[in-house]
Design a protein around this nucleic acid. Sequence first.
DNA 1: TTGTGTGAATCGATTCACAGCC
DNA 2: GGCTGTGAATCGATTCACACAA
Lengths: 221, 221
Amino acid sequence: MVEPAPRGVPDATVGRLPGYLRALTELTEQGVRSISSEDLAAVVGVRSAQLRKDLSHLGSYGVRGVGYDVAMLSAQIAGELGLADRLSLVVVGMGNLGRALSSYDGFTPRGFEVVALVDEDPQVIGTVVGGRRVVSMADLRRSGLVPAIGVVTTPAHAAQHVVDELVALGVRSILNFAPCRVEVPEEVAVRTVDVATELLILAFHHHHRADAARDAEVDAG
Amino acid sequence: MVEPAPRGVPDATVGRLPGYLRALTELTEQGVRSISSEDLAAVVGVRSAQLRKDLSHLGSYGVRGVGYDVAMLSAQIAGELGLADRLSLVVVGMGNLGRALSSYDGFTPRGFEVVALVDEDPQVIGTVVGGRRVVSMADLRRSGLVPAIGVVTTPAHAAQHVVDELVALGVRSILNFAPCRVEVPEEVAVRTVDVATELLILAFHHHHRADAARDAEVDAG
DNA sequence: TTGTGTGAATCGATTCACAGCC
DNA sequence: GGCTGTGAATCGATTCACACAA
């Protein structure tokens, strides 16, 4: 019996695995068969020591003096991310963002599949978005379908309620686009993507560039 | 002369400031005038020691034995983020996501303003999205307008080129939604928001929940 | 000789715990 | 008495640097 990944891959490493996998996929398409940590790190934009340390957490095997086999490493990382089986998504909230995501055709080739669209507005339920009919949360519950991942694109005030309903349904992973924190039981994973937060962080840098420039002048004499 | 924020707020702290500001805004609306670090931390979902340490980097003043004045603290954080002046945005790429963002009406109340929409497709240029006419990058250049922040919602293969054009225009902050890394000069800030990456991180947790459950059983005897 | 895998060292961020102030 | 602000301790993540395998 093999011992693929010993235990406990650090969160920081997990956060970089998708980037590694994307780079490896591109390299495969370019016909690259083998690559060194130095070169792969350059493609991804990290340091080679970090890449090697990250891969060591997967118990991954490169070949000393040679590098990594691209196909082998891709398979290792894909396996670690659990991409053997396709993951089903439900998108809740058919506003601008929800409709945009529901119409996005990049999920299927990456191993994800939108299996349900939900909204609470009777005017919206029954309409078709991206070739799929929008249903109510009650309809979803009755269908018995339990998507792997719930994508929440409702306004902030509705997000917690929707998340509670998804968790009650059995959904254990949530991607939250609402600009608010949501509470979930310990066994549920949530990631929040908030455009407003990102813009405010950029605003900070914008605001402090002036300071940096002033410091640079002082440093220069 | 006052010494507001000494120098160098840690990145991790900057990343949490938007959350603090959002919580404080809600508290203001609820009529809360003053709050302790313990209570505010509970609202935001961090530890109180972390909140106090974060605020100490801003040179912020609470009152010992009392807590923080909500209005005062809001102003401090807003000032640190540079929200005194409104920040202008250009959205490049009028696909599903670009149109959704361009139609989003949540920017204005938060201090951001979409001032230009750009696409390269002649079929799209001249059309109206969210009440604003789409122009070409050349049109934007000729207008002399230099938005504070460039929001890139193009396909991955076009993102680097668009970013280069924005940087050449004088844009110094980029919010990149394309699923790829973009190279920029040192003085330009980039934040990448990638839905595919977020989904893969959730896939990891989904895949490893089984392991965790098995471990829990073992622990239980 | 080359480049991985990894202990050791470093760096940064979080948490603790309490002195100091209201 | 209660809560902030902050040094000290801890924890985790990054980087260094080199032994070792091919």
